[in-house]
Amino acid sequence: MALEDQLPALVGVVVGAVGSYVAAHFTERSRWRRARAERWDEKRFHTYMTYANTLKAQLRVAQRIGAARGFQNVADPLEPDEGLALLADAESRRASEWEAVLLVGDAETIGAARAWHEAVWNLELYARGMREDPAGWSRAYGQISQARDAFYACARRDLGITGPPPPSGRWPRPWQQPDLS
């Protein structure tokens, strides 16, 4: 059998092998990209969740110190002498978690997270005794609620979570309003 008789079959084998290699390459590349995206989505979710929980714990300490200073709508007062050390520890944990948010978050979510922790810092000024206005305490609380809602909206968008955001946690809640009847 002459080479020219076998050439079409040989070309078919080469084309088939190249086509198979290219298809396998693109399939594996697509699978790798999908797996990488899933890993980063999981990492972002964990980072956002941990940051939110850490900031909420810091806020809770500030609230309790504020209750001891006489600010309203907070239970479980915590004396400032004991609470300020806890507040400093909570801030250290928050600052550590913040670095992870900076690494994996998108720009909007980072901005929303920053606005939320700055709103908590504002409330801490009352807990630390640097501000004493009860109306300012209530406004600071409202700012925290708005900043938290914005953070969750941005984080959900970044994570690709569809559907409406959760109901607002606006402060104070309707059941906390004084009965004016």
Rank of each mutant, 00 (worst) to 15 (best):
L125E: 05
Y48G: 01
R114K: 11
A37H: 13
Y152F: 13
I144H: 07
S30D: 12
M49P: 09
E124R: 03
T50H: 12
T109C: 07
E99W: 14
R36A: 07
D41V: 05
V104P: 02
L123S: 07
G129N: 10
E118K: 11
Y141V: 14
S92P: 07
A100W: 14
V120E: 03
S138N: 15
E28I: 09
G142M: 01
Q58W: 11
Y48L: 01
Q58D: 12
W40S: 13
A115P: 00
A68P: 06
P165Q: 04
P164I: 06
E91L: 10
G163K: 06
A150V: 03
R31E: 14
R128P: 04
P166C: 09
P166L: 13
R139L: 12
A113Q: 01
I110A: 10
S30E: 07
K43H: 11
Y48F: 04
E118N: 11
S138M: 15
L55V: 08
H25Y: 11
Q63P: 12
D41P: 04
T47H: 01
C154M: 07
H46N: 09
R33L: 08
E28G: 07
P166V: 05
A140N: 04
Q58A: 07
E91N: 05
T50S: 15
S138V: 14
L59C: 02
A119L: 01
I110M: 06
H46W: 10
S30G: 15
F26N: 05
D158M: 11
G129T: 02
R39W: 05
K56E: 09
